[in-house]
């Protein structure tokens, strides 16, 4: 072993500590992304998602419903399920794996705060979700392109020229709409909220499996949040809704994400036009959920014994 020489210069450079450093957070995020990219199980899931999207044309041709609607239904449904499952499964294993391998010790023994670590992990998962969403969107757009081409060809063959032109224009304007891209954005946003929720749960959970089960249960309960809200919005302390029940329901509606909020994707799948302000509201609420989960997760993680 030889004696090192650049040590003092390195030490001088490394000494400017910031409370929150993007460089440190990015290092953790990039590493998390790289780790997840190497997990073979997610490739199987992605291939299955892409397969479902690819076969939507076939499903549409044997469907009694409108063909575009079926393609949209299958593709957006596959994207929703895949991204949510990916978010939960990928996030749930991050902390337990680092703790089990003791890599967490060497990371947190460096000047890295636990908040930076959590943000880095979440950012890494967000990157993998973005890549997965982009890949599936690309496959979806290819499917839509083929569907549109086949539909135009059919119209040219079956309709009178003057009627065909109007029908073709309608097909063209109704396929690649801004609402559709907004819907894909909602799917992506929903998956990040699921990842944030799972990360929060993994901050106090003791096992990977427990995190996955609880996260999926909370996400499922999220579809019942509007029902819970409608109950507590009645007058407090009435015979119908006792005070303690109302308080419990209020807490549930704060911490459990309102998954119905994201069900605007279902409307998009059936061709309903959705206003831009709805997307803005969803993005705002989603960001709010994410911040709450990150903060609560950090509170648990900051006091966790390693």
């Amino acid at each position: 072993m030889t004696t090192e020489s650049s040590g003092p210069a390195v030490a001088a450079h490394a000494s400017a500590h910031k409370l929150f450093s993007l460089r440190r957070t990015w290092a953790i995020a990039a590493n998390t992304f790289r780790d997840l990219v190497r997990q073979k199980v997610f490739y199987f899931m992605l291939v299955f998602g892409l397969f479902l999207i690819g076969t939507s044309l076939l499903t549409a041709s044997i469907s009694f419903q409108g063909q575009l609607q079926t393609v949209m239904d299958v593709c957006l449904g596959a994207m929703s399920v895949f991204t949510m499952l990916l978010a939960v499964l990928a996030t749930a294993m991050l902390l337990p794996k680092d703790m089990e391998d003791r890599t967490l010790y060497t990371i947190l023994a460096k000047p890295v705060s636990r908040f930076e670590y959590l943000v880095g992990k979440l950012a890494g998962v967000t990157m993998i979700l973005l890549v997965a969403t982009l890949l599936m969107t690309a496959a979806f757009l290819v499917v839509l392109y083929f569907w549109q081409g086949r539909e135009i060809e059919n119209l040219q063959l079956t309709e009178m020229p003057e009627r065909a032109a109007a029908a073709i224009a309608k097909v063209k304007s109704g396929t690649f709409t801004s609402t559709l891209f907004g819907g894909i954005g909602v799917i992506f946003f929903r998956s990040i909220v699921c990842a944030g929720l799972t990360l929060m749960i993994s901050c106090f959970s003791t096992s990977w499996l427990f995190t996955v089960i609880i996260s999926l249960m909370v996400i499922f309960a999220g579809y019942l949040v509007p029902m819970a809200r409608s109950v507590w919005q009645g007058p407090l302390g009435t015979a119908e809704v006792p005070t303690h029940t109302a308080i419990l329901l209020r807490l549930i509606t704060v911490f459990v994400p309102d998954m119905q909020l994201f069900n605007v994707v279902d409307d998009i799948a059936v061709g309903i036009n959705v206003d831009a302000d709805v997307f803005v509201r969803i993005a705002g609420l989603g960001a709010g959920y994410l911040l709450v989960y990150l903060f609560v997760g950090w509170l648990f993680f900051a006091w966790r014994e390693l």
């Binding site: 390195v10 450079h13 490394a14 460089r23 440190r24 990015w26 290092a27 000047p111 890295v112």
Partner: peptide, 10 residues
Amino acid sequence: DFYGKLCGLG
């Protein structure tokens, strides 16, 4: 590289 970046090096 990873641990160096955590210490603010680059």
